[in-house]
Simulated assay, not measured.
Amino acid sequence: MIIRILGEGQFDVADEHLDRLNELDEAVEAAVEADDVATFTPALEALLDAVRSHASPHAPDALDASDLILPPADADIAEVREMLADDGLIPG
């Protein structure tokens, strides 16, 4: 799966890591729904850090579409609220 973090680039993430990413995504979604900025910021950081640590950079010269797009690390809660789908940032 190709995941783009806005402002950073694309990452190749193996399917075996998706369950953990979904757990972290649920924490982000819960913080957004509760309008809890204090919880939101570390939850988003944890999600993005997990993508970075469990993925390899996608070839920068490849023109492949991203399967998922995640907000940048400096996104605020309102920006992420607009990006959320019914399944969170990471469907599944």
Rank of each mutant, 00 (worst) to 15 (best):
I5W: 01
L6H: 05
G7C: 01
G7R: 00
E8Q: 09
E8Y: 05
E8D: 01
Q10G: 05
Q10W: 00
Q10E: 06
D12K: 14
V13A: 04
V13Y: 04
A14M: 12
D15G: 14
D15V: 06
D15C: 03
E16S: 13
E16T: 13
H17D: 10
H17P: 08
H17W: 09
L18V: 11
L18E: 12
D19M: 08
D19S: 13
L21M: 01
L21S: 01
N22R: 12
E23Y: 01
E23H: 10
E23C: 08
L24I: 00
D25N: 05
D25V: 04
D25L: 02
D25T: 00
E26L: 09
A27M: 06
V28I: 03
V28F: 06
E29C: 15
E29T: 15
E29L: 11
A30W: 03
A30G: 11
A31F: 04
A31V: 06
V32Y: 00
V32I: 03
V32S: 00
V32P: 02
E33A: 14
E33G: 10
E33H: 12
A34D: 12
A34N: 12
D35V: 12
D35Q: 06
D35S: 07
D35L: 05
D36G: 02
D36T: 03
D36V: 05
D36P: 07
V37Y: 11
V37K: 13
A38L: 13
A38K: 13
A38M: 12
T39C: 10
T39R: 15
F40P: 08
F40Y: 10
F40H: 08
T41A: 14
T41L: 14
T41P: 02
T41W: 12
P42H: 09
A43R: 02
A43I: 05
A43G: 04
A43C: 04
L44V: 06
E45M: 08
E45D: 15
E45R: 15
E45Q: 14
A46G: 01
A46K: 06
A46P: 02
L47K: 12
L47A: 01
L48P: 03
D49N: 14
D49E: 10
D49W: 07
D49M: 11
V51A: 02
R52S: 04
R52E: 02
S53N: 10
S53M: 08
S53A: 03
S53E: 14
H54T: 14
H54K: 07
H54E: 09
H54F: 05
A55V: 00
S56H: 09
S56F: 03
S56Y: 04
P57D: 06
P57W: 10
P57E: 12
H58W: 01
H58I: 00
A59W: 04
P60W: 02
D61K: 14
D61W: 15
A62K: 05
L63R: 14
D64E: 15
D64H: 09
A65E: 15
A65K: 15
A65W: 11
S66T: 09
D67F: 01
D67Y: 00
L68T: 13
L68H: 13
L70R: 02
L70M: 08
P71Y: 08
P72A: 13
A73K: 10
A73I: 09
A73W: 07
D74H: 13
A75K: 00
D76L: 04
D76E: 02
I77G: 05
I77A: 05
I77V: 06
E79S: 12
E79K: 08
E79N: 09
E79Y: 05
